[in-house]
């Protein structure tokens, strides 16, 4: 069986002011349907750029991206939006400040000519655990966690198969992060979603993903299965250092002795 997301030798190069920045260099990865795949690395490692390249938001300079075995059309069409949706990092910046929640959630339906707007918006709010009374509020009347729930609801309006998650909880408090991660996991199980998730937090990736690709300076460093990550069986020094610096090590009694 072929994998749902296939990325082969992907390169992304930005050109500005006569300088060339090779943000992603020959990265390959495959995500089977209904799996959850993580990208981890420091800022500037190119992990978010891969998500943006899938959506057609970054200049691909080489390699191929296939969804369900099919190469993607440029610019991305409506059919792509119906299959693949993205949740961005900053819930304060990714919702239109002058659109009500209702407007934000019903827009994809209007674009795709899907009816039953009322019922779908109400169901979307309920699915992400928000009271339906939030429907006619504006983003500034919501907390960060509530806004991220709206962003997730919006991404699910078209019932996509794939969610691209770009640091979906890094702007949130720990307790709110737990709620949003639980919500994402529940939705994945209920709907058979496929996740491609970016995070700088190894513990979050470990909690959410079956496999993880460690990136550095635009290159893939090492791909790990979840068990190998938990047992610290990484082969490269960089993945090791990321593991050692990971904040959650300090709660580990064993980790404390060695520091």
């Amino acid at each position: 069986m072929s994998d749902l997301i296939e990325i082969e030798d992907l390169s992304v190069t930005f050109r500005a002011h006569g300088r060339t920045v090779r943000a992603v260099q020959s990265v390959s990865l495959r995500v089977p349907a209904q799996a959850s795949f993580g990208l981890v690395g420091e800022s500037g490692s190119g992990k978010s750029t891969i998500l943006r390249a899938i959506c057609g938001l970054a200049p691909v300079s080489g390699g191929a991206i296939r969804i369900g075995g099919q190469p993607l059309r440029s610019p991305r069409d409506k059919a792509f939006a119906a299959r693949v949706q993205m949740v961005f990092q900053d819930p304060y910046a990714s919702l239109h400040p002058r659109h009500t929640i209702d407007h934000t959630l019903s827009e994809p339906l209007a674009i795709h000519g899907i009816g039953e707007t009322d019922a779908r918006v109400v169901r979307a709010l309920t699915d992400v655990g928000l009271p339906t009374s939030f429907r006619f509020r504006y983003p500034h009347q919501l907390s960060g966690g509530q806004r991220q729930r709206v962003a997730i609801a919006r991404a699910l309006m078209l019932e996509p198969e794939i969610l691209l998650l770009d640091e979906p909880t890094s702007a949130l408090d720990a307790s709110v992060q737990a709620e949003v991660l639980n919500l994402l996991n529940r939705l994945r199980t209920e709907r058979g979603l496929t996740f491609l998730m970016v995070s700088h937090d190894l513990a979050v990736i470990d909690h959410m993903c079956d496999r993880v690709l460690v990136m550095q300076n635009g290159r893939a460093v090492e791909e790990l299965a979840r068990d190998d990550l938990a047992q610290a069986r990484m082969k490269t020094a960089y993945a090791q250092s990321l593991f050692a610096a990971s904040a959650d090590r300090m709660l580990d009694p064993a980790g404390k002795e060695t520091r």
């Binding site: 307790s175 737990a178 979050v204 470990d206 959650d248």
Partner: peptide, 20 residues
Amino acid sequence: QGLLNCLPRIGGPRAPLPGL
């Protein structure tokens, strides 16, 4: 305790994280 427990941990269980 709630703040500590709601953090995911490497190699931790996949069960839903306890909310606060």
